[in-house]
């Protein structure tokens, strides 16, 4: 069989050890698939979405209720974006818990963290584009957090919001970043990330001399497995999108109106929980950035896992990184649950 374009995106053969679902969880591949779905459905949404405060909410209603299959496109976009956050975090946890962040993959680990940050920015700007009552609190609070940064706060706020309060200027900026700026950055970092996987020797496994299993699979086999994963993932996503509608509320008419539900998007609930404790800058900006910094420093400060211990979960030589990451994960999950469960009606 002559390899097609899609086969050529893969190496001719890879070690079978690199393609074990129980090892990789398929999270990275799933993230690529969800990125493609999000991009495609997002492009379709652009035919209807109007990025002005007066029209944004109405154009989403138009898409959702009046355009044939518009509801499906929007639900797919929304749910693939949410699942993408989960898949990316799973991918990150897999990399840390299997010790795959060590040399020579340190730089690609940074690229991955960069992609995660871009992804959260993508989600937040997309959340803001709804411009409805359900996101008003998060828009006001999120942008006000920027103000709390010492010295840089006001210029940053002006850069992001472009006015006294979130309005037309900010919506245009969110739109431009969402559909163009962030997309471009994700393309660059994403392609770089994929390139570095191959450059760094594929998925982390011990070097050939330290392996027992020398079996290899062909690119044909690999693509078939990917197709199967995409079919199952696609069907699951589709069924989810068919039966669980993406949230939508009445368009914002007054940004500073009283009332409304004070609720952050789910991936920032943990930050919202901390905001109740005091200083917005410390809890809302410094701690999240601090957590990111800890993740960035893991491969550079902690001893890298031994090469012989690669290709398996929880290698003993990566214990410190695992403990730190488990602690951070539990902290974030705990804070999220505290906010989501305790204060929900």
């Amino acid at each position: 069989m002559r390899p097609s374009f899609f086969h050529h995106l893969h190496p001719p053969t890879i070690p079978a050890l690199q393609a074990r679902l129980r090892y990789t969880l398929g999270a990275g591949g799933l993230a690529i698939f969800l990125t493609l779905v999000t991009g495609l459905t997002g492009a379709l949404e652009m035919f209807f979405y109007v990025p002005t405060p007066e029209q944004a909410g109405l154009s989403i209603q138009q898409l959702t209720f009046l355009v044939p299959f518009g509801w499906l496109v929007r639900n797919l976009h929304y749910w693939s974006a949410q699942l993408l956050v989960i898949a990316s975090i799973l991918h990150l946890l897999r990399v840390v818990f299997t010790g795959a962040y060590g040399r020579p993959r340190r730089f690609n680990y940074l690229l991955g963290l960069g992609l995660l940050v871009l992804l959260l920015l993508f989600d937040f700007t997309g959340y803001g584009l709804r411009w409805d009552e359900g996101v008003r609190w998060a828009l006001v609070t999120g942008t006000n957090l920027v103000r709390s940064v010492p010295l840089l706060g006001e210029p940053l706020y002006a850069l992001i919001v472009g006015g006294e309060q979130p309005g037309a200027a900010m919506l245009t900026r969110f739109y431009a970043w969402h559909i163009f700026g962030l997309t471009l950055l994700v393309l660059i970092l994403g392609i770089w990330h994929l390139f570095r996987i191959r450059r760094d020797g594929g998925i982390a496994v011990p070097p050939p001399e330290l392996r027992n299993n020398h079996e290899r699979i062909t690119r044909f086999e690999l693509v078939r497995r990917e197709v199967l994963a995409m079919l199952i993932g696609g069907a699951a996503l589709l069924l989810f999108a068919i039966f669980v509608p993406a949230p939508l509320a009445a368009p914002i008419t007054e940004m500073n109106a009283a009332g409304g539900e004070p609720r952050a998007p789910w991936f920032f609930l943990w930050v919202q929980q901390m905001l109740a404790w005091g200083s917005p800058f410390f809890f809302g900006v410094a701690i999240p950035l601090g957590i990111l910094l800890i993740l960035v420093l893991i491969p550079y400060i902690l001893p890298n896992p031994k090469r012989a211990e690669l290709g398996r979960w929880f290698p003993p030589s990566g214990r410190a990184a695992q403990i730190i990451t488990v602690a951070l994960t539990l902290l974030i999950i705990g804070l999220t649950l505290a906010k989501a469960l305790v204060e929900s009606p």
């Binding site: 109405l58 209603q61 959702t64 209720f65 009046l66 939508l248 509320a249």
Partner: peptide
């Protein structure tokens, strides 16, 4: 006016 979902 555009919503075909009763709650919204």
């Amino acid at each position: 006016r555009l919503a075909l979902d009763a709650d919204l």
